[in-house]
Amino acid sequence: MANHKDIVYGLYNDEEELLKAVKVAGDKHIDIMDVYTPFPIHGLDPLLGLSESRLHIGGFVYGALGTLTAFLGMSWMLAKDWPVIFGGKPHWSVPAFIPITFELTVLFASIGMVVTFYIINGLGPGVVNPTIDLRITDDKFCIAFDTASTDKASAESFLRSTGAFEVNSKTI
């Protein structure tokens, strides 16, 4: 976090107040920096204009990579690199490769998605993100504005008029 931001934020008591406020901000074209909540709020993403997450596409790609790795790997090892006869079966016994191919598909998709999830969110072991308010992970719902893009006074009046019980500013 090289660049410090001056933010104005308001805390709400209830997610439905928050949703209404976000909707008002959308109608008035006030540019919200981010919304912080203690749990996922359904219906918030479209109001904030967040596009659907593409993580699952990543999951598919990683999974396909796992399928190929497992199937081609086993085929090469048992049919090409060092063919051994097991139980009189063909070297390239495709049905016997299915279970491990499936397992590695799942393994690659899961690890790939989870690692991607942390990287694109900028989260990980040892990461210290600035804390806006300690109550956000407990029971408060926060809307934050960056004063670089939104006028501070209008942000404050917006927060108060939409029911924020506390309005503060902070440098993060």
Partner: peptide
């Protein structure tokens, strides 16, 4: 992991 509770993260 430095979780913030941001809408996009959720």
């Amino acid at each position: 992991f430095g979780w913030t509770g941001s809408a996009k993260h959720w």
